[in-house]
Simulated scan of single mutants.
Amino acid sequence: MLLGASPYGDAVAHACQELTGASNHFLAARAWTVLMRVGHGGERSELAERALTEDRPALRGRALVNLGLDPEPVSRDEARAIVAGLEAECEDVPVRHGAMFALGMSGAEELDGLLHHRCDAVRRGSRWWLDTGPAIHDRPPAPAPRG
């Protein structure tokens, strides 16, 4: 968290995003965990791309949590991709939790459709997020005027 708040936060985020694709599962998992604390460093599209294309289920769950932590809500296309991945992996607990977190924190409209999902845990999760509501993020302060 300290690194994320420091002038090095963006550089740490960039390095960690590169490491999320490491063939070493342990290293990639740690990189996703660090990103949960430091953010994406202005590289949200890269974060989303990695989260939506991660093919290792244990890491996909962490990746989707990162997407849900971002103040920018998931787009409709991202939400559709998350739901499509959930169809194939609804029994995988980390993937299911990450997917529901990303959709729920964003208040994605796709949650309504998941109320009738074949997986009971997805139905319950959808109901919980719809009842609870999405995340509330403070807007970042405006940059100080120069001059």
Rank of each mutant, 00 (worst) to 15 (best):
residue 1 M to E: 11
residue 1 M to W: 03
residue 3 L to T: 01
residue 4 G to A: 07
residue 6 S to F: 01
residue 6 S to C: 00
residue 6 S to H: 01
residue 7 P to D: 09
residue 8 Y to W: 07
residue 8 Y to G: 02
residue 9 G to M: 06
residue 11 A to F: 04
residue 13 A to K: 01
residue 13 A to V: 04
residue 14 H to Q: 08
residue 14 H to T: 12
residue 15 A to I: 11
residue 17 Q to T: 09
residue 17 Q to H: 10
residue 20 T to N: 02
residue 23 S to I: 11
residue 23 S to R: 12
residue 25 H to M: 06
residue 26 F to R: 01
residue 28 A to C: 01
residue 28 A to D: 01
residue 29 A to Y: 00
residue 30 R to H: 06
residue 31 A to K: 01
residue 32 W to A: 03
residue 36 M to N: 08
residue 37 R to G: 02
residue 38 V to G: 00
residue 38 V to Q: 00
residue 39 G to A: 06
residue 40 H to A: 09
residue 40 H to Q: 12
residue 41 G to C: 04
residue 42 G to R: 07
residue 42 G to N: 05
residue 44 R to Y: 13
residue 45 S to H: 13
residue 45 S to F: 07
residue 46 E to A: 10
residue 48 A to C: 11
residue 49 E to A: 11
residue 49 E to F: 08
residue 49 E to R: 15
residue 49 E to Q: 13
residue 51 A to M: 04
residue 51 A to G: 04
residue 53 T to I: 07
residue 54 E to F: 02
residue 54 E to P: 02
residue 54 E to Y: 03
residue 55 D to F: 01
residue 56 R to K: 05
residue 57 P to S: 05
residue 58 A to Y: 04
residue 58 A to C: 01
residue 59 L to M: 02
residue 59 L to A: 00
residue 63 A to P: 05
residue 65 V to K: 09
residue 66 N to I: 07
residue 66 N to K: 02
residue 66 N to Y: 02
residue 67 L to Q: 05
residue 69 L to T: 06
residue 71 P to F: 09
residue 71 P to K: 08
residue 72 E to G: 07
residue 72 E to T: 15
residue 76 R to N: 13
residue 76 R to S: 14
residue 76 R to V: 15
residue 76 R to A: 15
residue 76 R to F: 11
residue 81 A to T: 10
residue 82 I to Q: 00
residue 82 I to L: 00
residue 83 V to P: 03
residue 83 V to G: 02
residue 85 G to V: 03
residue 86 L to C: 03
residue 87 E to D: 05
residue 87 E to L: 04
residue 88 A to C: 01
residue 88 A to R: 09
residue 89 E to H: 10
residue 89 E to W: 04
residue 90 C to T: 14
residue 91 E to K: 10
residue 92 D to M: 06
residue 92 D to F: 05
residue 93 V to A: 09
residue 93 V to M: 05
residue 95 V to I: 13
residue 95 V to A: 03
residue 96 R to V: 09
residue 99 A to W: 06
residue 100 M to W: 09
residue 102 A to F: 08
residue 104 G to M: 07
residue 104 G to T: 11
residue 105 M to Y: 15
residue 107 G to M: 12
residue 109 E to M: 04
residue 110 E to Y: 06
residue 111 L to P: 11
residue 112 D to Y: 12
residue 112 D to N: 12
residue 113 G to W: 14
residue 114 L to Y: 07
residue 119 C to W: 05
residue 120 D to F: 14
residue 121 A to E: 15
residue 122 V to S: 02
residue 124 R to E: 15
residue 125 G to Q: 14
residue 126 S to I: 14
residue 128 W to D: 13
residue 128 W to K: 14
residue 128 W to I: 13
residue 131 D to P: 09
residue 131 D to G: 14
residue 133 G to C: 12
residue 135 A to Q: 15
residue 136 I to E: 15
residue 137 H to E: 14
residue 138 D to H: 10
residue 139 R to C: 08
residue 139 R to Y: 12
residue 142 A to Y: 04
residue 142 A to F: 08
residue 145 P to N: 03
residue 147 G to H: 03
residue 147 G to I: 05
